[in-house]
Design a protein around this nucleic acid. Structure first.
Length: 271
DNA sequence: AAAAGCCCCTGGATGC
DNA sequence: TGCATCCAGGGGCTTT
């Protein structure tokens, strides 16, 4: 579920409320993708300084160390005063003096990992290879275009990889390529500089508009307050196979790329 | 080095 | 109703 907009919307929905809190308890449910990486008791008493985001990771800064949270495919967080018993897919609780942060993740592709610092081996392993952030002003045409020129893989799969720019997942890759008029199967090194610029602007545009709409709720996403997102109502191609293109009326197609579905309009998007 | 495939796991929708 | 099949917002790891 969670791509950059959903992760950012989640962050915005609880970061201010948890800042300054002391950790009073940790509960581990079923195993997630990786083990926590420390003894949960050692987190007791630590203070939450704030919550940042890097790509699709949330970084919960503690006065000593940092927790790296990833929501995987089906994860969502809830931050509230409701400390009633954990439900079926609640697999991690961070209880604090200001509320309970609870991870619900049916498929358990998500993870919570403790790292002593952002420069530690544990953190670098997860964050070190990530590309630039698309929404903080560091996403520049020159580096993006040069990065595209080095790769022969399909542009859509390169976007999903996150090596050039982070946060673009399966929904927003299809949407950004539609807005830029680029066929998802186009080889990255065949994307001209002007088209790379259209794509760069499309990525920034679609991600920032999605954040404003609270993200996309296709089946079960909600922010830490339990509120859903509405960007899926504005999707031009994602999950619209067989339906008419909102621009030209051509039937939207679905293809497979790297065991993921890609949606596009054959008329609006040129190879 | 880069590209392509393979998994991890649960549940909902669809078809017979 | 039951059961099989396919599909799903990710990404690290292994193999070519």
């Amino acid at each position: 579920m969670p791509e950059l907009p959903e992760v950012e919307v989640t962050r915005l929905s609880f970061a201010d409320r948890i800042a300054g809190a002391r950790v009073t308890g940790v509960r581990l449910g079923k195993p997630l993708r990786w083990p926590l990486g420390c003894v949960s008791e050692s987190l007791l008493g630590r203070q939450v300084l704030g919550v940042r985001r890097r790509g699709k990771y949330l970084l919960v800064d503690l006065n000593e160390g940092v927790l790296l949270w990833h929501l995987g495919m089906s994860g969502s967080l809830r931050f509230s005063d409701d400390r009633s018993a954990a439900q079926t897919h609640d697999h991690f609780d961070l209880d604090t003096t200001q509320g309970l942060l609870r991870l619900n993740d049916p498929r358990r592709f998500g993870a919570v990992v403790y790292a002593p610092s952002e420069q530690s081996a544990q953190a670098v392993k997860l964050l070190g290879h990530l590309g630039v952030e698309p929404l903080n002003g560091s996403f520049e045409l020159e580096a993006f275009h040069q990065g595209l020129r080095k790769r022969k893989t399909a542009i859509k799969q390169l976007l999903l990889g996150g090596e050039l720019v982070v946060g673009v997942g399966n929904i927003y890759a299809s949407e950004a390529l539609f807005l830029a008029g680029i066929r998802p199967t186009t080889r990255a090194d065949r994307v001209s500089r002007p088209r790379a610029e259209k794509l760069r602007l499309a990525i920034i545009d679609v991600l920032s508009r999605a954040v404003k709409k609270g993200g996309s709720t296709l089946r079960d996403f909600s922010n830490a307050d339990g509120q859903q997102g509405y960007f899926q109502l504005e999707a031009h191609v994602y999950d619209r196979v067989g339906e008419p293109c909102r621009v030209c009326g051509t039937t939207i197609r679905r293809i497979q790329q790297g065991q993921r579905s890609t949606y596009y309009c054959t008329r609006c998007q040129k190879p």
